[in-house]
Design a protein around this nucleic acid. Structure first.
Length: 200
DNA sequence: AGCACGATTAACT
DNA sequence: GTTAATCGTGCTC
């Protein structure tokens, strides 16, 4: 039993609301039997085919088909010839929306994460979408896995609530060629934890 | 078949 | 601030 796994209905709301509620939750990868985990600190919302920054803008393809499926699954894509990025599918089946996980605070499996990210200092271990997937050993083999399944190697558990006061809304990153209004939508959510925030 | 580019990162001037 | 790394994807020919 792992009653802390977020249920599917957590992912059913509007994608921006899910992106907000994911802040403070715990991303967990069971990597060859070891628990690697981090607290989610930054997310971005991508809202369906009309959102010209969303991979679903071109319609359903082999690459993005998971986004068109049921909520609570992982959409993991390959980019720039070398990086993997992790998303959580949201909303009703057939509506292609997802939340990109952009930053986590590592809390479990620190030794393994440190080894994988030894080229950079600790604050930069997991402060980017491709940094955290590399740190946690997440890649395309996990594309489509059910984040709500007790037996899944990749899950998200309930964490601590983060007050609105600690959260900034900012424009999304890396979409400079996308037309307005999509380019400037403040759909990147960043949590600033106080220095004395408890780790576990 | 060929092409331009990407929801990025790390290293370098 | 600038740029190389490195290849799948979607589009054009």
């Amino acid at each position: 039993m792992s009653p802390d796994i977020l249920p599917r209905n957590f992912y059913l709301g509007p994608v921006l609301q899910v992106a907000r509620n994911l802040l403070g939750m715990r991303l967990v990868h069971y990597d060859q039997g070891e628990r690697l985990a981090g607290i989610i600190l930054e997310t971005e919302a991508y809202d369906g085919q009309q959102d010209l920054a969303c991979h679903a803008r071109v319609g359903k393809t082999r690459r993005n088909e998971v986004m068109f499926g049921p909520a609570g699954h992982a959409y993991i894509y390959f980019t720039y010839g070398m990086h993997w990025c992790l998303n959580c599918v949201t909303g009703e089946e057939g509506y292609a929306a997802a939340v990109l996980i952009r930053s986590i605070l590592p809390v479990e499996g620190i030794a393994t994460i440190a080894k994988r990210r030894s080229k950079v200092e600790r604050p930069e271990w997991c402060n980017g979408p491709a940094k955290l997937t590399h740190a946690l050993g997440i890649d395309g083999q996990l594309n489509g896995v059910d984040l709500c399944d007790i037996n899944s190697p990749l899950i998200i558990e309930k964490g601590d609530d983060i007050p609105d006061q600690w959260i900034q809304s900012l424009p999304r990153v890396g979409i400079n060629s996308v037309p307005e209004p999509w380019r400037s939508k403040p759909w990147r959510l960043h949590a600033n934890l106080p220095p004395d925030w408890e780790k576990t």
